[in-house]
Design a protein around this nucleic acid. Structure first.
Length: 611
RNA sequence: GCGCGUUUAGCUCAGCUGGAUAGAGCGUUGGCCUCCGGAGCCAAAGGCCACAGGUUCGAAUCCUGUAACGCGCACCA
């Protein structure tokens, strides 16, 4: 199908070029798209209308030229000019049937290596050490993992990097809290849960001490609250202690280093449990701490190249009205498109920006990336625009994409780790499996206990993933249990069910010794023909997802495919059809199963032969 | 205040980057063959595409403004 539309598009463009004489401004290929309605045929070309205006010629004249050029094409049964200047194309049934048979014979279902020779580094999930993964992490993890698979499926050389938060000021606090309040039994049972408890306790204690201090100062300045609070007045003692421990850690103190390593190792185990349940994997876990030793060099380099300058004691990059890095010679402008970007704090410390520049350099240099995708929530858009501008100024020319998604929030506001007011990913997955296991028992009473649990696992996890993947990633999501765990309608179980029904048919055919191979496919009914056309759309759908990083497009495709199959299934007997039709329908059915399974695999969703 | 984003059926969302009469799921209502699996299928009802202008053969889609909501805006990540 892709080869066909490309071929038709080129022929159409050539016809117009010769008609209009000058190929000036003419695309090399006209867009050939799916027809909007059955009456319009299978494909249509809409580009003649805008071109006609540009060329000051009647649109129908151009459309007619295109139609004449395509007339007689072996794939086409009919070409017609319609309306003000549309070109409607009707495919020959034989061509559709033959193309479908070719797709069935192809182990990759028609997917092409559009990413061949390109290495893409994808950064997703990236949880923070010592904090449990919660529903705020699920979109990055699941969307990132799906993109990982999709990109690999179209020939990219993909490197997945889990950029975990394993460095920063929280470690000073954790070390203090751990030494004061550790409950060893609780830690042994659930290290990350205990670390979270310790962190929360630290924050509460810090707040309490601060309160005492304010009281002692007898409301010296009541309305301070918001502004540049902490700067004035001494910090609470516990915070001072945390800062000292942090400095010791940074200086390489062996006891603190050991604790830090322990926190990371135990957290990674907890993350890995979740990843195993989700089928998510990474090539590297290059957390923030990886870059510690490089940071002074990064800042020095930025200074040397005139990107960063001294400002209020910090090293800062400024931007111009276009959003490009401002050369050091120029004074900062009021109309700057982006706010200042601090790459080194006034106390000499480094921050997120410094680490990310180092990360970028490593990915471009050592990892040889030709495209970098970073999957995070919407709050970091500004940060990455600044970062990418700095990277470009440093000579990075590869594609840098911030694949952002809408924040997941609860009905009453955003997720707040500090209050511990979150739904942990583990709870979510447990509940998903629990509900799906109950449903499995209702729908399949003949299943054994073990089978029921397995069905519940696959269906429950699938439902959770699909729920996130099927919405445009930029949509804001308000979490509710019932929506996240829905099992009816446009959901993973619907697709899994369609697959299981097909497997049931194929199983019965196999019992009769029938082998479904690359039979001739014949499309006797409009429903069969429609189903075949849907199947042929698989490669372009996957390529589109790889290009635009929008997995919901694949979800929509699979849902429509399953719907097309359900329609077919309802009134097209397969096993009971006469032999010639039966072979063709079996082949079509087999192909639907393969596309469903492969598409769901790319989304990270498993399928079952029975459910 | 500035920036980014969002606004489509009662609810949750698509809408293929400007095409022909705006589509799904949930919910509601009514149907489904003694026949390959009813987690399914078919049908009905439900729309001023936030609002106001503009661009053109044509706008949910592009441009401007307004409103509401979300997020962000130097030394957290």
């Amino acid at each position: 199908m892709l080869d066909l539309t490309s071929d038709l598009g080129q022929r159409a463009a050539r016809a117009l070029a010769s008609l209009l004489g000058s190929p000036e401004g003419l695309p090399a290929e006209m867009a050939v798209v799916r027809a909007g309605k059955p009456e319009f045929g299978d494909l249509q070309i809409n580009g003649c209308l805008p071109l006609a205006k540009q060329a000051k010629r009647p649109p129908r004249e151009l459309a007619t030229a295109v139609a004449q050029a395509l007339e007689g094409h072996p794939a086409l049964a009919k070409v017609e000019v319609a309306g003000p200047g549309f070109v409607n194309l009707h495919l020959r049934d034989e061509w559709v049937a033959a193309a479908t048979a070719r797709q069935l014979a192809d182990g990759r279902l028609g997917l092409r290596d559009v990413g061949r020779g390109q290495r893409v580094v994808i950064d997703y999930s990236s949880p923070n050490v010592a904090k449990p993964m919660h529903i705020g992490h699920i979109r990055s993890t699941i969307v990132g993992s799906a993109l990982h698979r999709v990109l690999a499926a179209v020939g990219y050389d993909v490197i997945a990097d889990n950029h975990i938060g394993d460095w920063g000021t929280q470690f000073g606090k954790l070390i203090v809290a751990y030494r004061r309040w550790l409950d060893p039994a609780a830690y042994a049972a659930d290290p990350v849960g205990e670390l979270l408890r310790l962190y929360v306790k630290f924050v509460a204690e810090e707040k309490r001490e601060r309160g005492e201090m304010v009281d002692a100062h007898a409301h010296a300045h009541e309305e301070e609250a918001e502004g540049e609070e902490e700067a004035q007045g001494p910090a609470p003692p516990i915070l001072e202690e945390a800062r000292r421990e942090l400095v010791k850690l940074q200086a390489g103190d062996s006891e603190n280093r050991a604790l830090w390593r322990k926190f990371i190792a135990d957290s990674r185990h907890a993350f890995q449990e979740i990843y195993d349940r989700l089928g998510v994997r990474f090539d590297y876990w290059l957390g923030e701490s990886t870059y510690n030793d490089l940071l002074p060099t990064v800042v020095a380099e930025l200074g040397r190249r005139g990107i960063a300058r001294d400002s209020r004691g910090a090293q800062v990059a400024f931007f111009d009205e276009q959003g490009e890095v401002l050369p050091r010679e120029r004074e900062p402008v009021e109309e700057a498109k982006l706010p200042p970007f601090i790459v080194q704090k006034s106390d000499g410390g480094f921050n997120y920006a410094t680490t990310d520049i180092a990360t970028m350099s490593l990915r471009v240099g050592l990892l040889g990336a030709s495209r970098i995708l970073i999957v995070t929530d919407e709050r970091q858009q500004l940060h990455f625009r600044q970062l990418f501008a700095v990277a470009r100024r440093m000579g990075v020319t590869i594609a840098l994409e911030h694949v952002w998604f809408g924040l997941m929030r609860m009905a009453d506001g955003t997720i707040k780790t500090r209050e511990g007011n979150v739904i942990h990913l583990r709870e979510l997955l447990d509940e998903a499996e629990r509900r799906a296991t109950i449903a499995a028992g209702e729908h399949g009473p003949e299943l054994s206990e073990a089978e029921r649990r397995e069905v519940g696992r696959v269906v429950g996890i699938g439902a959770v993933k699909y729920n996130d993947l099927s919405k445009d990633r930029q949509t804001l999501v308000t979490f509710t249990w019932d929506k996240a765990l829905a099992l009816q309608g446009n959901t993973a179980p619907y697709l899994q069910y369609a697959y299981a029904r097909i497997r049931s048919i194929l199983r019965k055919a196999a019992e009769g010794g029938e082998i479904v191979g690359a039979q001739t496919i014949s499309l006797g009914t409009p429903v069969e023909r429609e189903l075949a056309k849907r199947l042929l759309g698989y490669p372009e759908t996957v390529e589109q997802v790889a290009r635009t990083c929008r997995p919901h497009v694949l979800c929509d495709y699979l849902f429509e495919l399953a719907g097309a199959f359900s329609g077919f299934y309802a009134d097209h007997p397969v096993l009971k059809a006469e032999p010639a039709v039966r072979a063709s329908r079996l082949a079509l059915t087999e192909l639907v199963a393969r596309v469903l399974r492969d598409g769901l695999r790319l989304l990270g969703i498993e399928v079952l032969d029975r459910m």
